[in-house]
Amino acid sequence: MQRALRLLECVSGHTYGAPAKQLARETGLALPTTYHLLRTLVHEGYLRRDKGLFFLGEATERLSSSGARQKRRTAFLEALAHWRDALGAPVYYAVYREGEIDVLCVSDTPGNPAVEEWAAFRETGHAHAIGQCLLSQLGEEDRRDHLARHPVRPVTPYTVRDGHSLLRRLERSRRTDVVTERQEYAVGTVCAAIPVTVGSTAAAIAISLPAHQADRLVPAAQRLQTEGARLVGSLALSISI
């Protein structure tokens, strides 16, 4: 295994390919061993041979691409964790795709736990800041289509009462506005969501706080919007999460 990796590393240093004898010389491997390993690596798709020269194959390129994507994903999760700790609040990342609200990542701690999903987030977008933020980024036709499939209904005593009222609220908000809701999804919890740019996809990053800390909500959201949303959006776009 180690010798095969040495060969792969050696081949990767030759953009225009290299013959077996040169690879054997540069890796210090015996020529028969080199030929055997090269045949195996070609058979498995890690290398390809063309006119006596060896190049990296599709399998190696897929491994490289997968590793780079995982590295970007780790950076994305670390960014969420950074803002979780900096703001002292759980941080959520969600997108709107294929007609549904999809919360993809949640970064929280035992001291600052995320909101319990006691009513399905996908079906209650009208009641939480994440859903309202995502819906505010859609066109009117898409909003109405979503609400036709997931009608407005009371979730708590503070939930918007009907679809008409929600649509009016969404029409008044700009795509770049911070969206806040206070106990509309969960009694005792307040939330804020910030729209982020992820290509053509509607996306949002959000935080939640206990209701008795409601005075912290807007300042924390504004800080996240100013300092963190662009970074999170660029990382999310780079991994197509």
Rank of each mutant, 00 (worst) to 15 (best):
167 L>S: 03
88 G>A: 11
88 G>M: 11
130 I>D: 08
222 Q>H: 13
203 A>T: 11
141 E>N: 01
156 T>S: 12
150 H>E: 06
241 I>P: 00
103 V>S: 04
159 T>D: 11
151 P>S: 07
221 A>G: 10
107 S>I: 02
29 L>A: 13
220 A>E: 06
70 Q>N: 07
150 H>Q: 06
229 A>P: 01
193 A>R: 08
107 S>D: 08
77 L>M: 10
70 Q>D: 12
13 G>K: 09
16 Y>K: 14
166 L>W: 09
91 V>F: 05
79 A>I: 01
113 P>C: 02
190 V>H: 07
36 H>M: 10
206 A>K: 03
66 S>E: 15
3 R>D: 15
102 D>M: 01
35 Y>Q: 14
1 M>A: 14
236 A>M: 03
127 A>V: 03
220 A>T: 03
210 P>F: 02
115 V>E: 15
42 V>K: 12
221 A>C: 12
14 H>D: 14
169 R>Y: 03
144 R>Q: 12
178 V>S: 04
180 T>I: 05
95 V>D: 14
176 T>D: 15
43 H>L: 08
77 L>H: 06
154 P>C: 07
2 Q>G: 11
166 L>C: 09
149 R>I: 01
237 L>V: 05
81 A>I: 07
105 C>Q: 15
40 T>D: 12
147 L>T: 03
158 Y>C: 13
53 L>K: 11
220 A>C: 10
199 G>E: 11
216 R>W: 12
187 V>D: 11
50 D>Q: 12
161 R>L: 07
46 Y>P: 07
114 A>I: 01
137 Q>M: 10
14 H>Y: 15
145 D>C: 01
139 G>E: 14
15 T>N: 04
157 P>N: 13
232 V>L: 08
86 A>S: 07
110 P>T: 11
209 L>K: 10
29 L>E: 14
129 A>P: 06
47 L>I: 09
92 Y>D: 08
70 Q>G: 04
156 T>G: 08
59 A>W: 00
31 L>N: 05
225 Q>V: 02
232 V>T: 02
116 E>L: 14
36 H>G: 05
130 I>P: 01
43 H>I: 00
139 G>Y: 10
69 R>E: 13
225 Q>Y: 01
1 M>G: 13
100 E>A: 12
3 R>S: 13
45 G>T: 07
16 Y>E: 15
203 A>H: 06
229 A>F: 01
179 V>A: 11
233 G>M: 03
166 L>M: 10
224 L>M: 13
190 V>K: 10
184 E>G: 07
142 D>G: 00
